[in-house]
């Protein structure tokens, strides 16, 4: 059973439907105890980072997520969910959960034709192997929609990158945490396959 963290940040039902399409059952919860006890957690998010972080804290979900991370529960962050695992975000600005050193920064295009938000299907390059990225090849594209990007301080946490006005991190992780800037739930069959791998993942990096 997958537990999807409900904190008013985006369309949880898209994630749930995508899980259902590959036979995975999931539940939403905004109850900190259920999150702390969950077997497997999806931490999604769309929208404003500071608003999202404030809601997490107000509901006590930040502490519940800390507890789950500490217990070794496999956690998948998506989009704003991925951004919030860093120390902080320039969007707000706000502090993050601080699980991975680094900051979320705004795209500031050097060239006029670069548009923000970065919206559409972009190819993903695997920088270091990870069970959740198994089978992902350089020509594989995933769906992105974001104006801020992940900037982890340490390359060790960078598992995949993408190019948009330069190279940026699009998948990061440590221990039982993995997080993507792209949306697996909107990335067709390749995205669904990543969700399937997450459902089988034991929470170790290699």
């Amino acid at each position: 059973m997958l537990t999807i963290v409900d904190y008013n940040a985006g369309n949880l039902r898209s994630v749930q439907r995508a899980c259902a399409a590959v036979g995975l059952t999931s539940d939403f919860t905004s109850d900190p105890e259920s999150v702390a006890r969950a077997d497997r957690i999806i931490f999604p998010g769309v929208g404003h980072a500071k608003t999202a972080m404030d809601t997490l804290v107000a509901r006590g979900l930040d502490q519940a997520l800390h507890a789950a991370l500490g217990r070794g529960t496999p956690i998948l962050g998506i989009c704003v969910g991925a951004q919030l695992v860093l120390d902080g975000s320039d969007e707000g600005p706000t502090v993050g959960l601080g699980w991975v050193p680094g900051q979320t920064r705004r795209f500031t295009p050097r060239e006029h034709h670069i548009k923000v938000p970065h919206m559409g299907w972009n190819t993903v390059h695997v920088e270091r192997p990870h069970p959740l990225l198994e089978g992902v090849q350089n020509e594989h594209a995933f769906y992105f929609v974001h104006s801020y990007y992940l900037d982890p301080a340490d390359d060790r946490h960078v598992f995949a990158t993408s190019d948009y006005d330069g190279t940026f991190c699009c998948a990061l992780g440590r221990d039982n945490l993995f997080a993507t800037q792209f949306h697996p739930e909107k990335s067709g069959r390749l995205g669904l396959a990543l969700l399937e791998r997450f459902a089988r993942w034991e929470g170790t990096s290699c």
Binding site: S14, A18, S187, R189
Partner: peptide, 8 residues
Amino acid sequence: VAARTFIP
């Protein structure tokens, strides 16, 4: 549509 297609 949302239950059957997984693209935006």
